[in-house]
Design a binder for these strands. Structure first.
Lengths: 194, 194
DNA sequence: ATTATTTCTTGATTCACATCAATGAATTGG
DNA sequence: CCAATTCATTGATGTGAATCAAGAAATAAT
């Protein structure tokens, strides 16, 4: 059940069997069906979730009731509202399953415990945070410098796998566009390229 | 010379005098005058800079030669292109001084050394990265959900100090607006509020 | 001081994208 | 398998911000 989770960790750190046993005792395996929430706006985020199967998304809802997708998390990715998770503030994010999914959940208490009990996990998180920061930095760079068309094609190139599994209006939402606009961008590209 | 730097670190971790001595041997103190670059597009980012006096900014230049400010860093802040610093890739960022400034520079080699020699520094960076990630997350949230007017007033509320020291067209640049648009937003607000 | 440079404001016009509206295609669920 | 949602496309219209242009105000330099 935890194989994918341990594989992920092993990509960056080395875990002993004893370490794995400690993890097993402190994490929770959970299934989510399509559309089911992991976190809902107004709650405190209780978990960092590792996706071992399926796909989740996190998104905001603005005053006009438009959804803005912040992150897609297919198998092998983590998803959470880290701010809410760490500071125990109310979240303004929603996290739900785009496909029926399987998760490994780490609660706040478990997270703290595991970082102490397994120093390598602390190191892993160090790298995760650093990497996540760099990724967001790049996303902001793209938001500022790329045209709508370029943003879309770049997304297709970097995450072709994800883009194929996700409905188009969610891609639009991730890019900060309306579905109509994305549809028009795609049409324009299809005339250009092939 | 390093007082501000040590104060900053001491906000989150505890440093012994021995630790401080190690730092002193591995960091570089540098002055920058107004407009002087710390990092220029196309170079590899060699340092993480702590600003002990003055203010720096990082910014991108897009194809149309428009500048987009990513970060302001007044005294007490760090600034760098972390991606370039870590992976030793060419940077597409510029970092320069908005005011004449004093810096404490940590090179890549020093950074690695210091994290090993001073475990508390590793912990400090863990928290820095985590905090930086959360901040960027919030910035993206605001980009998606707030109106231009709201983005501006929020910025004024959170960083009144910085906003007073920085020319208006740079605030516009940070917000992803033209100076003209920001000027009009301000006019509208001045009619509304007072 | 006075010239030069940078910064800010205001107006007229253009443009990219949102919004509104309707229809067709594709999934999903009973 | 068929009804019901969900999803994607297309057209007409509206809007917020960019662009272009010019002048005023403020800072800096000689």
């Amino acid at each position: 059940m935890l194989d994918h989770f341990f594989n992920k960790l092993s990509g960056n750190i080395t875990l002993t069997d004893a370490d794995k046993a400690v993890f097993s005792q402190h994490v929770i395996v959970k299934k989510l069906r399509k559309r089911q929430y992991l976190l809902q706006d107004g709650e405190i985020c209780k978990y960092v979730a590792f996706v071992s199967k399926g796909m989740l998304r996190s998104y905001l809802v603005d005053k006009k009731n438009n959804e803005h997708i912040i992150q897609f998390a297919p198998e092998g990715w983590f998803i959470s509202d880290l701010n809410s998770f760490i500071s125990e503030d109310y979240s303004n994010l929603n996290i739900d399953a785009i496909e029926s999914s399987e998760l490994v959940l780490v609660s706040r208490a478990a997270h703290i415990h595991l970082e102490q009990a397994v120093p390598e996990f602390f190191k892993f998180n160090y790298m995760q945070y650093r990497g996540a920061y760099i990724s967001l930095q790049k996303r902001i760079n793209d938001m500022f410098t790329l045209s709508t068309e370029e943003k879309y094609t770049k997304l297709l190139n970097i995450y072709p796998d994800i883009m194929q599994r996700v409905p188009q209006h969610m891609i639009a939402s991730y890019l900060g566009l309306t579905p109509e606009t994305l549809s028009r961008v795609r049409k324009k590209l299809s005339v250009k390229k092939p």
